[in-house]
Amino acid sequence: MKLHLTPAPHVHSPQTTRALMGNVLLALAPCAVAGVVIFGAPALVLMAVSVLSAVAGEACWQRLTGQKVRVNDLSAAVTGLILGMNLSPRAPWWLAVVGGLFAVVLVKGLFGGLGDNFLNPALAARAFLLVSWPRYLTTWAAPLAADAVSGATPLANPSGYTLGQLFLGNIPGSIGEVCKAAVLVGFVILLCTKTITWHIPVSLTLSTLVFCGLLGYNPIAAVLSGGVLFASVFMATDYVTCPMSTKGQLVYGVGAGLLIALIRKFGLYPEGVTFAILLMNVATPLIDRYTKRRVYGYEKEAKA
């Protein structure tokens, strides 16, 4: 008899990394579909190119550096898809390629691969693209139209759209973030599959609502404009760059909401979500340090 001599535990939860990433892809599907419906074929092309370049980039990098090629854990695919959804539908295809490669090689690969990136790769790539080629990422298309319109998004023209339009997504904006209904469906999918918990999305959204309201915006419209909902569900909840404890996650969400409101009101960019979350990503190790749990049997903080 040849038996496996491996240590306990001898059973394992069915949730693997690949399964979790698969759940995220599933939850992103409604937004992807909505994006294609609202913006047409260019959206599909951008998302596909983004995913392909992210996956190919990661595979090549892992090969080049002599590591095991782990693209089948689907994390690169998730990064690519989220990046694609963050682009304007009018963006050129090569933007998606550059962004995808930036995300998986520079933000993820150079720092040690999965689990070691200090910023959300898709978001960091988006920030890089925004800073490098601002006009491509701020040229919007009117929905279901073939021509480019550097028209005002709801952020630039708050009174030009009704709440209903904001919710369903019949507005200019990035591919994945316009249809808030699809984002909510995705949120429910992630909750039901126990992929994420409610803490970050809810705290981020509520915080944005409160602080935007305090700063003079219509709070509901503020939450429904731009990428707040999409980011709160899919981008702020990236495991690697958000705090581990629920207390920390609430602090993270509140902080991000405050920053979003501040950047929107006082900052250069109409959209504050990208940089707000990136700033909170950087603050995560600090948050983790101060929200450590008490160990059983110790009266207070036990360790350094």
């Binding site: 990394t17 782990r70 854990d73 691969g113 999965l114 689990g115 070691d116 495991y239 690697v240 760059t241």
Partner: peptide, 11 residues
């Protein structure tokens, strides 16, 4: 063993 994804489930 795969790389840790910092999901926090162990914590």
């Amino acid at each position: 063993e795969d790389p840790c994804i910092r999901c926090g489930r162990c914590v």
